[in-house]
Design a protein around this nucleic acid. Structure first.
Length: 236
DNA sequence: CGCCAGGGCCTCA
DNA sequence: TGAGGCCATGGC
């Protein structure tokens, strides 16, 4: 078992399944973390919206914006396209960058209008990724989050937490590129959407608990295999 | 009060 | 192609 697999097993044994991505159930307005065998079209749309709304933003602030969209029945491509941008921005204000994000929501809806989800689902991951990244407002991480969590296709999501945890652990450089680190996960793990889903969520959880900006190394249960704790020096 | 959160675009070398 | 500035709220 390689290091990438080892860390996954330690995290899953410690935290258990995370049930990402949180989605809203029928007749409710608050997205929940729970086991789901399949997603409705509306829930897929909600995940795509959420992936944009949570850019560089805490999930708590994102959640409030999603609740507002739910209350106004706006998890809907056509309705987002119809609504006034300023009004939309006001509804998602809690998620920050609300003017930019209001435009981004309209951008992805414009795209989805031309490219229905059932057509996108047939594309190869690389083609789907190119199309998503081509949308203004969607970069690599947001695209990969959408592919993994909305489309349930195996691509590993890299974020600031992932770079922090794995560079400190000594498995990559501190300034590793997105593509480079993603390739490390792809080549060291079986290509499995459920695994990628759970692993990324577990990394986020562990970085919130221990591998913070100011890390709690003494209490961290990964310290035995983490190079950061041995020298308290960031690996370069 | 400052810092940070489940980034991405634009600009300018 | 990569570094820096900008976008912005709410929790701690």
């Amino acid at each position: 078992m390689n290091y990438f697999e080892q860390i996954y097993h330690i995290l899953i044994n410690k935290y258990g399944p995370q049930f990402w991505w949180p989605v809203t159930s029928q007749n409710k307005v608050i997205p929940e973390y729970k086991k789901k065998d399949s997603l409705t079209e509306k829930q897929k749309t909600e995940i795509m919206f959420g992936a944009i709304l949570t850019q560089n933003t805490s999930w708590k602030n994102t959640e409030k914006a999603i609740v507002n969209l739910n209350k106004n029945d706006l998890i809907d491509i056509d309705k987002i396209l119809e609504i006034n941008v300023t009004e939309l921005a006001n509804l998602i204000k809690s998620s920050g960058y609300f003017n930019q994000k209001a435009k981004k929501l309209k951008n992805i809806c414009l795209f989805l209008k031309e490219n229905p989800v059932n057509e996108l689902e047939r594309l190869k991951i690389t083609d789907l990724r190119k199309k998503l990244i081509n949308i203004n407002g969607i970069g690599k991480e947001t695209a990969d989050s959408i592919i993994l969590y909305a489309f349930n296709k195996p691509i590993f999501v890299i974020d600031a937490y992932t770079k922090r945890l794995f560079s400190r652990s000594g498995l990559c450089r501190k300034d590793v590129s997105y593509d480079e680190l993603q390739e490390l996960f792809h080549s060291n793990l079986e290509k499995n959407a459920e695994l990628f889903n759970e692993y990324h969520a577990l990394i986020v959880e562990h970085c919130k608990e221990f591998c913070r900006k100011k890390p709690l190394c003494k209490e961290c249960f990964l310290k035995e295999i983490c190079r950061y704790t041995k020298k308290y020096i960031e690996i370069v």
